[in-house]
């Protein structure tokens, strides 16, 4: 019975994901907001690939699901915190089937039943996805934080890149989504938002010979460069 249900779910999930993109992400991002996308051709349309946008708002995921063409949406997987999105049943069902998140534990979980208490790798879900040829969306800042301010990047992307040295890592800078719906608010205020897509990085050429810190520094500086066009004055 369970297996049958899983099979139905497997069959339905790509369609639920497309439906979510068309019926929720598109109206919000294209009608309520509005997007100026630069360098759209740099977006990887085939997996395995990793895209790393900055994170200011829940709308960021919707924006990502809007810039990818509808045909690849089932392969586009936002990586999200299990301790936030899997806490309630309804939220978990919605996040997994409609948004298509790959849940990861932000704190290292203990393997259940593991006698010696060996730590499970929190990124295991990401490895599996890359092996299936999916496109991961990872917000390297880890959390939304202060609206429209970049934070220090977490090193998870470097860990993934080092395990998959040929996989392209595409930095993306988005401006305006934190203004439209910052942390703590739930009604988006209409603003045009900017999405600037960078050139892909690879572990082999951009890690200074296998240094995770150097790789993350390079990623950070590329995102900074992408952001420079969008520095605008504000009254506060």
């Amino acid at each position: 019975m369970h297996q049958a249900l899983d099979a139905v779910n497997e069959f339905l999930r790509p369609w639920l994901r497309r439906a979510f993109a068309v019926c929720v992400a598109w109206p919000i991002c294209l009608v309520v907001l509005g997007m100026n996308i630069r360098h759209r051709t740099r977006l990887p349309l085939k997996g395995p690939a990793i895209v790393t946008p900055n994170h200011n708002s829940h709308l960021d995921t919707a924006a990502m699901l809007t810039i990818f063409p509808i045909s690849v949406i089932p392969k586009v997987r936002p990586v999200a915190a299990a301790d936030y999105f899997l806490t309630s049943g309804l939220m978990a069902w919605f996040s997994l089937n409609f948004v298509g998140i790959i849940p990861i534990m932000r704190k290292r979980p203990r393997v259940e039943g593991g006698l010696t208490g060996v730590d499970a790798d929190p990124l295991q879900g990401c490895y599996d996805a890359l092996e299936r040829g999916e496109i991961l969306i990872i917000f390297p800042e880890g959390t939304r934080g202060e609206p429209e301010r970049m934070q220090e990047l977490k090193s998870g992307v470097a860990v993934l890149a080092s395990k998959f040295p040929q996989v392209p890592v595409v930095p993306i800078f988005m401006h305006g989504l934190g203004k439209a719906m910052p942390k703590g608010s739930f009604i988006p205020v209409p603003f045009f938002v900017d999405v600037n897509i960078g050139t892909p990085m690879r572990w082999e050429s951009d890690s200074a010979g296998g240094d995770k810190k150097a790789f993350m520094a390079e990623l950070g500086s590329r995102m900074k460069i992408l952001s420079e066009k969008y520095e605008r004055p504000d009254y506060d």
Partner: peptide, 17 residues
């Protein structure tokens, strides 16, 4: 569309969300 574009150009205050 026009008002949205205008607000996206001019400085706004976060407090005025």
């Amino acid at each position: 569309l026009a008002f949205k574009e205008y607000l996206s150009l001019v400085p706004t205050r976060r407090a005025d969300h």
